[in-house]
């Protein structure tokens, strides 16, 4: 059997696959965080809770209304997006313009409340969510066995990331978004409704988190703490990629997922902390992040 540095090929590829899956979630979540940070200047600590909420909405849709996975993939981001719009209008807007710390504390508190309420109702062991029929099973790639659902997660995440990147970088709407990130006062003086844009951007970021949550439901089970576990790594990803950089968030997300996977193969003890070691190094060498512009 082929071995690479003493590790059998299938084991290595298996971990790379897991790394890519984790990377998919990192990328979609840090993408939403980057969008929100860019326009609202808020470090959204509730992002993990919104991801978790996405998975819960999918669970409720299935078990209360009988709406299956594919419907949830559309409806859960929509519902959480609307929830995000309300959050922005009711809670975040009044503290806009204040120090970062206020937004950070507010969203952190919000995350604790959402998690607490759902833990009270559903406990913390997690509830299973079945893989949808069309994506069950797997296929043989010749060198390894590929579960269909996991391939789907990677493809869907890549598509969402690419779509968002194109929207922001290549369309007139994206140009407005970039301009408003730089100088909201002037963009508003051009007659563009920047406050509405800010609200919708937060809603869109929340919807992205919920989308990741629905994708995660069949893999990790639906659990009130699923977001809290993930969000710390995602913040490290955002810091490494550079605050507010869209491309940075996406590439760093996938890259760090891969690095984490490889660390599991070659030095399993270090896999939980490798992301943070990289973060420390990046902060020392390039404090604005790999893709960030020094301000």
């Amino acid at each position: 059997m082929t071995e690479i540095f003493g590790v059998p090929m299938p084991v290595l590829l298996g971990q790379i696959l897991i790394g890519l899956i984790n990377g998919s979630f990192y990328a979609v979540l840090s993408l939403g965080l980057a969008l929100i940070f860019g326009l609202l200047n808020i470090i959204n600590f509730a992002h993990g809770a919104l991801y978790m909420l996405g998975a819960f909405v999918a669970y409720w849709l299935l078990n209360l209304l009988g709406i299956p996975y594919w419907g949830a993939l559309l409806l859960a981001p929509l519902a959480v997006g609307v929830f995000g719009v309300l959050l922005e209008r009711v809670l975040l807007k009044p503290i806009a313009g204040l120090d970062h710390l206020y937004g950070l504390l507010l969203t952190f508190g919000l995350a604790l409340i959402l998690e607490g309420v759902l833990r009270d109702g559903y406990g913390s062991t997690g509830m299973p969510y079945a893989i949808p029929d069309g994506l069950k099973g797997g296929f043989n790639l010749g060198f390894m066995f590929m579960p269909t659902y996991r391939a789907w997660v990677i493809v869907a995440s890549l598509a969402v990331c690419l779509g968002t990147w194109l929207l922001v970088e290549k369309t007139p709407l994206g140009a407005r978004l970039r301009a408003a990130t730089e100088n909201p006062t002037l963009v508003r003086a051009f007659g563009i409704n920047v406050p509405l844009m800010i609200t919708l951007t937060f809603g869109f970021g929340a919807a992205l988190a919920a989308f990741a949550g629905v994708l995660a439901a069949p893999i990790y089970a639906v659990n009130p703490t699923m977001g809290a576990n993930l969000i710390i790594v995602v913040f490290a990803v955002v810091v490494i990629g550079g605050m507010g950089s869209i491309l940075g968030a996406i590439t760093t997300g996938f890259m760090l997922g891969l690095i984490e996977g490889l660390t599991k193969v070659y030095y399993p003890e270090g896999s939980a902390m490798v992301v943070f070691v990289i973060m420390a190094i990046v902060l020392l060498v390039k404090p604005a992040g790999l893709f960030g512009k020094a301000s």
């Binding site: 970039r178 301009a179 990130t181 100088n183 002037l186 003086a189 007659g191 409704n193």
Partner: peptide, 22 residues
């Protein structure tokens, strides 16, 4: 502020306000 330009006034600020990311 975003309703004012709709009445037919436009502003070119002192710092010019050219966007670096555009």
């Amino acid at each position: 502020p975003h309703r004012i330009p709709r009445l037919g006034v436009a502003w070119c600020p002192e710092e010019r306000g050219i966007f670096a990311s555009l």
